[in-house]
Computed example of a mutant assay.
Amino acid sequence: MQHLKQKSKNPVLIMVTLFVLIVITFFISLNLGVIRIPPIDVLKTFLGQGTDRDQLVLFDFRLPRMVISILIGAGLAVSGVILQGISRNGLADPGILGINAGAGLAVVLFIYFFQGSLTGLGTLSIFIMPFFALAGATLAAVLIYVLAWKDGVTPVRLILVGIGINAAFGAALIIFQLKMNPRDFMQATIWLAGSIWGTNWKFVFATLPWILILIPITLLKARYLNVLNLGDQTATGLGTAVEKERRTLLLLAVALAGSCVAVGGGISFLGLVAPHLARRLVGPKHQLLIPTAVLVGALLLLAADAIAKNLLSPAEIPVGIVVSVLGAPYFIYLLMKAN
């Protein structure tokens, strides 16, 4: 009965619905903020007939931030899909495993040594920063993989080692933050809590290539994720180079997470929740799961960012805290369900 119910779902209709919800959320978010802009004025501004103030608010502040929210949501969701696929563990997430913490540590080190302030980034630095995030995330992933290796990598060992690495990098971040001056310490703390602080088009252009290149590559690798879900022995029997494909997929997950952390900070639980919701909507086949997770992740982070900006306006909550408030109960539910 469950099988028939799963077959009756229309993945195209589900994806179209998610896309429509993203568009609706996008336009609602354009109207909200410290400066409220009525929908008719938003339309006028897009048609080139708006006031200078509305143009400044929409094109220089709100639009780039919202586009970045969509990109980061999509990237972290696909990173979560990959990690859950290669570990065969529904609790895998780049934030929980320590990949985000590794990227965050590398970015904070880069900013501290080369810029001196989170607000002092030049144009070139914005484009270099994702590579530092990738280096930190890769270091975390290599440590996880090496320490989890024992005649292969089992899903349980991968998760447990990842949690340990996350704690270690988190401790290193705290030690390093204590050496900062108070102003930079506060900025770093807010950013690491998941604050989309890159609110201009330079950050969009720095993030966009990573998302546009890595997600299609992941989609091409979807069949390997399907095979890996059958177990290592079965996958090997079907002619798959298990460890080679797992390493390649892990690198894709790391690169996606690192590029997102470079701009969005330490947003946890999104890479956990989005794949689960997508799996409930379209099932476990990764050719459908990956694009659905892209849409779910984008929708979740766009909505969470709108809540973060407006809930305590004019004060702003880091979007990572909103995602954690929504995602932590679901994580606890999954833990209880697993036991």
Rank of each mutant, 00 (worst) to 15 (best):
A308R: 01
I35T: 12
L249N: 12
N166L: 02
A328Q: 05
N226H: 03
I24Q: 10
I126F: 01
A171C: 06
V12F: 12
G283A: 04
G136P: 06
Y224Q: 13
A92K: 03
L143G: 15
G104L: 01
A303S: 13
N200C: 02
D232N: 15
N310A: 09
F61Q: 13
F131P: 05
L97N: 07
G73K: 01
P11Q: 11
I165C: 06
K179G: 13
G266C: 09
D232S: 13
F26P: 04
L47H: 06
R62T: 10
I175H: 06
Q177G: 13
L21N: 02
A133D: 09
T218R: 02
A141R: 12
A133L: 00
F46A: 03
H286G: 03
K7H: 12
A222G: 07
Q2H: 13
G271T: 06
Y224N: 12
K244V: 03
L178D: 12
I24S: 01
T218A: 15
V282R: 04
A141S: 15
V322E: 05
A101C: 08
A315E: 11
W197N: 14
V156H: 06
F114D: 00
S313K: 00
A262Q: 11
A303K: 08
I267V: 13
S117E: 02
V254K: 04
V296D: 09
G80H: 10
A168N: 03
L220G: 13
L178K: 15
Q115S: 14
G265Q: 02
E243V: 04
T154N: 13
L121W: 07
G136A: 05
K309F: 08
L21S: 08
K9H: 10
P318C: 08
R247H: 02
L335A: 08
L158A: 11
E316T: 09
K5Q: 12
M186I: 04
A103C: 05
L63S: 05
L118W: 14
G231R: 07
K150P: 01
F127V: 01
L97K: 05
T240N: 03
R280A: 11
L208Y: 05
L252S: 11
S87F: 08
Q233T: 14
P329E: 08
D151R: 14
L76E: 09
I211K: 02
K7W: 08
L124W: 01
G265F: 04
G265Y: 01
D52V: 12
Q177S: 14
T207E: 08
W191G: 02
L147V: 15
L178P: 00
I40M: 10
F269C: 04
F127K: 01
L312K: 07
P39T: 10
K7I: 10
G239N: 10
R183K: 04
T25M: 11
